[in-house]
Each structure stands twice: as C-alpha cells, then as structure tokens.
Design a protein around this nucleic acid. Structure first.
Lengths: 145, 145
DNA sequence: CTTCGTGCAAAAAATTTGCATCCGT
DNA sequence: ACGGATGCAAATTTTTTGCACGAAG
C-alpha cells in the first residue's frame, strides 16, 4: 500500500472537515489497493467488508460521492450499468482503452490535455479535470462492426 | 432537419436488418433535431411523443441501445444520474466541456485523437471511437474547490 | 459536546425484460 | 408469412434519502 497516497488523502479530508472513521479508512484503503484499475461500487463494498465488517452499502456510496467531489477519485460509466471508480493518481496520470465487448481496460500513459489546453483557454470555464477514453475491441473480442 | 443524416442513418439500420417503424423514425428525428447537444432518455422520450404520440419509454431505451451499437449515437454519463445521448456527427466531430455544477456544456472543436493514435497503435485493441470530456465550472458556477 | 458519519430500511431513479400482439418488409 | 418491434406492466439494478443513534475531533 502506498502510504503517501493515504496520507495525502487523509489530509485532504481533514482539510475539508471530514472525519476519519474506520469505514472511511477501509474504503480508502481498498481504493488504494486498486490503484490503476477501475472498481465498481459493489466490488468496493465487498472488498471493504473484508477490512471492516459491518460497512453499509449506503456508506460506500456516500463516501464515493465525497471522494469524487474532493477529486480524490474519478467516476466513470462504461457503456451500460453501474458506475466505476478509480483513484486519481497524481504521479502517474493516465487514461484508458476500454473494450466495448468485455469491458477489459488497458492504460494509456499519453494524455492530450496539455496540447489542447492552449486552444481552450478562451472558454469561460475553469477546468478541473478531464476524461479521455478510447473504445474498441480487444483482441479476444475483436470484430469490426 | 438534415436530410442526409436521416438517409444515412436509415440506410445503416436497413443494412443491419432493422425495420423502420414510425416510433423509430420519430426517435431519430428528435435526435437529429438535437444535433450537437446532449439529450437524456427522458427528454428524448418527451420530445418524441410530440412526433409520434404513443411511443413507450421502453421503446426509446431499446432504440437507444440499437443506435448506440450501430455507432449512430454516443452514450455518456455526466457525473450523476441518467445517461445522456448525442448523435454522432461525422462532418463536425467534436467534444465537450461540461460544468460539474450545473451541467452546462460547451463544444470543443479540437480533438486529440489523431495525435495520440500513433502512440497507441501498438496496443492490441481495434479502436472504434473515443470520448474526451473536460470538466470544470462555468462562469456562473465558478468556484475553485 | 458538537458535528459529522453510520446502519437500517425504505424510496427513488434509471433501465431492462417477458409476453402477447402488431406491423414492416 | 416471417421476424423484428412495440406497448404494457412488472421486475431489476443502481443509487439516494430520512432518521435515530453512535462516534470523531
């Protein structure tokens, strides 16, 4: 487990007047454990239970919302169904290629944002973050539609 | 309404053995009318009713799925709640800046994909499409977190 | 001791499905 | 006619909320 991640997350929470409960800690630890991968609310819930039995699903959702607002995690929806979440990792910013068939994901280290930021500066938006996802079919599912 | 859009969509449907029902036509027309903007399933449903009363919500969803699979529309989720959809417009490919507070969107004409495609070519994925979304706060909602 | 967080249960929201029937092709 | 498409109603899935109690700072 990456201790510096944990520390900085806990500090960010404290700075925003959020308390550090065992449940919240367990949720964060599970997220850190999944660094670099997406995780669904359900999987997060199940895995968190192993660290702190008696954590409620609603607690997981409530925390996911807080962490999303604090820009500690990113929330995404792959095509259908439930949302998936990923820890924002400041020392390895990346994006994903996602298989539309099986949901398999692969990391892209490249990020287009710096090039584009110049073009966009004129807009009346204060940018905070971005999402860049490539879709296609992985070798197993490969089929051109 | 852009007739060429309609024609090419209808041809694509026919080519894939889908029939052209009044409901489906109404849904497509509504989507074309919203070209360049996102629309939710609910809004699409309501607007479609005006073209063809007695269209069911489930019919809308079923068609959205078909159109998504045929790459005629894009499905996206902005932060919370329901998915939003947008017609894929081949002669004006673009992306969005989205306000995290009020959901206001603005179009970015720039697209990073061509630059990046070179970097990614090695991956074992057959790319079909991509999503690039910038998030931030619009001038009205502006607040640095 | 004050405020935030939690569990529980219930509700709401969003989307999907089964089935009988209907309608394009 | 055949096979896909629809309406209706009901079920599922996902997420949110109210409330009383418990715990962190």
């Amino acid at each position: 487990m990456d201790m510096s991640d944990r520390k900085s997350i806990e500090e960010k929470l404290k700075a925003n007047n959020y308390k550090l409960t065992p449940q919240r800690r367990a949720i964060i630890e599970t997220l850190i454990e999944h660094k670099g991968r997406f995780i669904s609310a359900e999987e997060l819930y199940t895995k968190t239970l192993r660290r702190h039995a008696q954590t409620d699903f609603s607690t997981v959702y409530r925390n996911l919302e807080i962490l999303d607002n604090l820009e500690i995690i990113h929330k995404t929806n792959i095509k259908n169904g439930a949302a998936i979440y990923e820890l924002i990792c400041h020392n390895s910013h990346h994006h994903h290629i996602i298989c539309k068939e099986c949901g398999k994901t692969e990391i892209i280290d490249a990020c287009p944002i710096e090039e584009l930021i110049k073009t966009i500066e004129t807009k009346e938006f204060t940018l905070t973050d971005h999402k860049f996802e490539l879709y296609g079919y992985c070798s197993k599912c490969c089929k051109k539609p």
